[in-house]
Each structure stands twice: as C-alpha cells, then as structure tokens.
Amino acid sequence: MTRTTDPAPPRDRLLRAAAELFHREGIATTGVERLCQVAGVSKRTMYQLFETKDALVAESLAACGPAVVAAHLPDGTSGLDPRERILAVFAHLDELSGSPEFRGCPFLNTVVELRDPDHPASVVARSYKQRLTDFFAEQARLAGAPDPATLARQLTIVYDGSTSRAVTQGAGLDGLAVLTAGALLDAHLRTG
C-alpha cells in the first residue's frame, strides 16, 4: 500500500502528479505504477477515480489548464496597450525557454504525443490553445488590426513554433519570439 503525507484527496494528488509527470516525462513513458507512487495512491484507487489512464490524462490537462494559461497571459491590470500585451506573452516565452526545466507547451506536447485529434486530452488541449488565439484576436482587434482573426492565428503559429524550436534546440530563444511577433504585428498594424 502506498502512503503519503500529503493531506489532499487522492483525486487531487493524482491530477497534480499526472500533470507534472506527463509534461516532464511524457504520457507514454509515465506508467500507472509510477504515477500512483508519486501521487501516493494505489492503482486500485486510481482506477476507482478514473476509468482509464486516458481519462486521467484529459482531466489532469483540464485541471492544470487555467493556471498554465494565466501564467502566460498578462492580467487585465498590467497597464499595457494591446500590442504590448501580445508581446508580453512572447517575452514570457523567451524568458521561460532559457530555463533547463523548460519542456514546452503542455497542450502542444499532449496533442503531438497522442497524435489522435479525437482523444479526450487532445480536445482539452485544443480548447486551451484556442484561448491563446482568442486572446491574440481580442488584443489585435483593440490595436486596430484590419484582420484580427488572421493575425491571431499567425501569432499562435509563431508561439507554437517558438516553443517547438526551444525544445528541439534545447536552448533559449534569446528574444527571437518577441522579435518575430513584433515584426508580424508591425506588418499587420501598418496596413490597418
């Protein structure tokens, strides 16, 4: 029997452990046994709480999603104009990418690893990625972009590409994400 000193309910411990392990080590390489050990629960308890590992993957991503999104977007009290709010997202990514612990975007990683657009976790991941695109679209609209929806999708591509590059290279972006997003914003806002 697994024991833990964490007073949180087993479900919460499993969701936290799953979010951490799946992002750090990958979904396929994180076995149920390891997950249960880290969470301090038995396999029996896990399967009583979650029908399958896939269900746990989806629920853990949904549970950690709001905090991930909030950490990457400037809050409404930042005092930044719309262009600066967009660039703040990329500056944060530039900063994170220089850390040896940087593992990329948990939503993008999940979809890439699962390679199944209909998997429940892929659906959750897409919904959170859409929140980023919606944020970009709203800020682009406020900045006066002539086609905020297209600009938002382009900015999301820059974000995802920057994330992938940092993980692939194992090195920080050194300002490249901000520079690229800024050039894209300037091109769109000049034509407005």
Rank of each mutant, 00 (worst) to 15 (best):
F107S: 07
F107Y: 11
F107R: 09
F107T: 10
F107C: 12
L108P: 03
L108Q: 14
L108H: 11
N109Y: 05
N109T: 09
N109K: 15
T110C: 15
T110E: 04
T110M: 06
V111Q: 11
V111T: 14
V111Y: 09
V111S: 11
V111C: 11
V112D: 08
V112R: 13
V112F: 11
E113T: 12
L114S: 09
R115E: 15
R115M: 13
R115T: 11
D116S: 14
D116T: 07
P117M: 12
P117I: 13
P117Q: 12
P117W: 09
P117V: 13
D118K: 15
D118L: 14
H119N: 10
H119F: 14
H119Y: 15
H119T: 09
H119M: 14
H119L: 11
P120L: 14
P120K: 15
P120S: 12
A121M: 08
A121Q: 06
A121R: 05
A121I: 10
A121T: 08
V123L: 14
V124H: 10
A125E: 12
A125S: 15
A125I: 12
A125N: 12
A125G: 11
R126H: 13
R126Q: 13
R126D: 13
R126C: 09
R126F: 13
R126T: 11
S127T: 11
S127M: 05
S127R: 15
S127P: 02
S127N: 08
Y128P: 06
Y128A: 07
Y128G: 09
K129G: 10
K129I: 15
Q130K: 10
R131M: 11
D134S: 14
D134C: 02
D134L: 12
D134T: 10
F135G: 08
F135N: 10
F136C: 01
F136I: 02
A137I: 02
E138A: 09
E138C: 02
Q139N: 02
A140I: 00
A140G: 05
A140E: 01
A140Y: 02
A140M: 06
R141K: 09
R141M: 07
R141W: 01
R141Y: 06
L142K: 10
L142R: 13
L142W: 03
L142A: 14
L142N: 03
A143Q: 05
A143E: 08
A143D: 06
A143K: 04
A143G: 05
A143L: 04
G144K: 01
G144P: 05
A145R: 00
A145S: 13
A145N: 01
A145Q: 00
P146G: 08
D147C: 01
D147S: 04
D147N: 13
D147H: 07
P148K: 01
P148R: 00
P148I: 00
P148M: 03
P148S: 02
A149K: 02
A149N: 01
T150E: 00
T150Y: 00
T150M: 03
L151F: 03
L151S: 06
A152Y: 02
A152E: 00
A152C: 03
A152K: 04
R153A: 13
R153W: 01
Q154D: 10
L155A: 06
L155K: 07
L155H: 05
L155Y: 04
L155R: 06
L155F: 04
T156C: 05
T156K: 07
T156L: 06
T156P: 03
T156A: 12
T156R: 07
V158L: 08
V158Y: 04
V158D: 00
